[in-house]
């Protein structure tokens, strides 16, 4: 019972956690790489800073997308069962939260295309 509930909550909030992880990683990576003088290093033909940002963004984006799909499935499962309203509620909220997280993650990746690495 409790285990299932925990899983439901984690699913519903998962996208936001993905956003938080992405945020911490890209900010940490940029600070560390710039602070330690790797501004001009490159990896796979692009700068190491944009590389770190874009790869992190991609991974977390995929994670959030998967969470969104799973919560969609959950939502459909509970849609027709009015008696278990907490389940329906959690799954529907999950869809919304994971959807919004997708946007937030996407926006975090935008700067990598526009700004110089460490200036």
């Amino acid at each position: 019972m409790t285990g299932r509930r925990t899983a439901q909550v984690l699913l519903a909030l998962g996208g936001m956690f993905a956003w938080a992880v992405q945020f911490a990683l890209i900010y940490g990576a940029t600070s560390t790489l710039c602070g330690r003088g790797w501004a001009d290093a490159t990896l796979l033909a692009i700068g190491v800073v944009p590389f770190a940002i874009l790869s992190t963004t991609l991974v977390t984006l995929v994670a959030a997308a998967i969470l969104l799909i799973v919560s969609f499935r959950e939502e459909r499962r509970w849609r027709d069962q009015p008696s278990s309203t907490a389940d329906a509620f959690l799954s529907q909220t999950g869809v919304l939260i994971n959807g919004l997280s997708l946007i937030a993650i996407l926006w975090n990746g935008v700067p990598a295309f526009i700004l110089p690495a460490c200036a």
């Binding site: 937030a104 700067p111 460490c118 200036a119």
Partner: peptide, 26 residues
């Protein structure tokens, strides 16, 4: 994800600032 938006003028790299711009819009 917004805290550095009080530190936009502290001379941190623009890239670092931009994440906080993004979160502030989100």
């Amino acid at each position: 994800g917004l805290w550095v938006h009080h530190m936009f003028a502290t001379g941190l790299p623009k890239m670092s600032l931009s994440f906080f711009s993004a979160a502030s819009t989100a």
